[in-house]
Amino acid sequence: MLVVVCVKQVPDTTQVQIDPVTNTLIREGVPFIVNPYDTHAVEQALRFKDRFGCRVAAISMGPPNAEATLRKALAQGVDRAVLLSDRTFGGADTLATSKVLAAAIEKLAQEEEVGVVICGKQTIDGDTAQVGPGIATRLHFSQLTLVDRVDELDLSAKKIRVSRKLEGRHEHVEAPLPVLLTVVRELNRPRYPTVAMRLESADAQVEVWDNKVLQLDANGIGLKGSPTWVSRIFSPERAKGEMLGDGVHDPEGAAQLLIDKMLEKDLLAL
């Protein structure tokens, strides 16, 4: 069985500023990182590999320099890395992106049965959380989003049981394979590549598939295939802060209030 993990190279959003004139991201000089949620997806795939001996393939759609992101996945231990890169894929919204990724997974499935696809819950640049579900829909896979724990993967019975982290509650669900999971940070702690793996991955082959390989209708992908267009992008005004307590008396009470507020807003987890 093959586990496919989808990763994306994103600009380090902590360093992105918006050009107030053109309404676009100032990407110049901003380093790229692996979408943080995707690192947890890779880790989960590798845990399946450790446990069941299945193979793991990482795929990413992006420009040629997105290879660095796949190399990082290789350093962590994935067996195969495929970069989906073609000018015609560029400018894609979530719909067009999920088409390309789904097509790539179908192509991988021609060689080896795909049992599980894992994505991060969302990317930190787009923040839509639509690509994972989009892939599942196109592949007709079961779809389990926001997974924060995998309770059981039963390969013989072809089913999976997971916990989903929803606002203020958890949901325990079971689904038949093949399945697509989108995962949250609480799921695991990504492994740190050993030096040996880093050196290995530096020379490892990253396959590049363009549209000659995937053979998708050029009108359904990339900018042409994207019904979404961005009319405006801006930094929201920062809401005014709120004073908890009087700033002098009862610091413990104020701290408790702060903790409660943060829990309520899902900024803290217990």
């Binding site: 380090d12 902590t14 360093q15 380093p31 990182i33 702690r189 990504p190 492994r191 740190y192 590549p193 050993t194 030096v195 040996a196």
Partner: peptide
């Protein structure tokens, strides 16, 4: 070699490498 270290250090290592 082992990639085994206290949990807090993962963030440190990533921060150092990326930022």
């Amino acid at each position: 070699t082992e990639s085994r270290f206290p949990e807090e250090l993962l963030n440190l290592f990533e921060n150092m490498e990326q930022r």
